[in-house]
């Protein structure tokens, strides 16, 4: 279990970042982090990943660094490597032999339905395929914790929905803990098991609730009255018009 007790990280000068925060993330749960820009969503991800140190408080994060997957908004692929080489990179850096790394990478590419693109360079791919490559690179590490920093932000709506549903299905089998930063209230509530809303600068937790949807998500679920009611509550909260 990941536990934050009184954790804060304030960036000098801007005053933005994360205010004093107490949170717990259970193994295998998918948590969406919502909030306006500067409320500390990405800071929270970076703290959990160990890319930043907290200014105050204690953070207990039990996973080894090489079992943490981080998916960035722009896919963060190395442009001089092809898709297969990008996906094998984490294993090659760990000293794994190229042949077995490639076999594992091909399995991940197949799982994400992008094996035909194995020899393509990133600039030859659409945004959706690039994001799938980035996810394959994360999955090859067999991560226990996956941090998604606005993974669908640069994608068109149909691709966002399709990829979101696929990931929901995939992660329901693999059961990693997932923290996902998103600006889309609907997407965050629809894909996750729990939603945490951060408010203010620096941000603090304004809402922490479990999803009303069942484990299997469908497009029709977005029309569920309870779901829509929660979307509205988050919307009102993020617009600063009321209390949860």
């Amino acid at each position: 279990m990941i536990r934050l007790e009184g954790v804060s990280k304030i960036y000098p000068g801007t005053g933005t970042g994360l205010g004093s925060t107490d949170l717990e993330f259970q193994p295998g749960e998918w948590v969406a982090l919502l909030g306006p820009s500067g409320s500390g969503k990405s800071t929270l991800l970076r703290l959990v990943a160990g890319l930043e140190s907290p200014s105050t408080g204690s953070l207990n994060q039990p996973h080894r660094r090489d079992r943490i997957g981080f998916v960035f908004q722009d896919a963060a692929l190395l442009p001089w490597l092809d898709v297969l080489e990008n996906v094998t990179l984490p294993l090659i850096l760990k000293g794994r032999d190229r042949k077995s790394a490639q076999e594992l990478a091909e399995r991940e590419l197949d799982r994400l339905r992008i094996l035909p693109h194995a020899k393509s360079k990133p600039h030859e791919l659409s945004g959706g395929i690039r994001m799938r490559v980035s996810i394959a690179r994360t999955l090859i590490q067999q991560p226990e914790l996956i941090l998604l920093d606005e993974p669908f932000a640069a994608l068109d709506e149909p691709i966002r929905i399709e990829l979101g549903l696929e990931l929901r299905e995939l992660f329901s089998h693999l059961r990693p803990t997932i923290l996902m930063v998103t600006h889309s209230i609907t997407e965050g509530l629809w894909l996750s098991d729990r939603v945490v809303v951060l408010q203010g600068q620096p941000g603090t937790v304004a809402l922490d609730e479990r999803s009303t949807l069942g484990p299997v998500r469908t497009l029709a679920g977005r029309g569920d009255p309870e779901f829509l009611s929660m979307v509205e509550r988050c919307f009102v909260l993020l617009k600063g018009r009321g209390n949860p």
């Binding site: 990943a49 890319l51 943490i68 722009d74 850096l93 760990k94």
Partner: peptide, 13 residues
């Protein structure tokens, strides 16, 4: 790019 440096840090390079 800082994002790629972060990626390598996360991969324990």
């Amino acid at each position: 790019e800082p994002i790629l440096l972060d990626l390598f840090r996360l991969m324990d390079a």
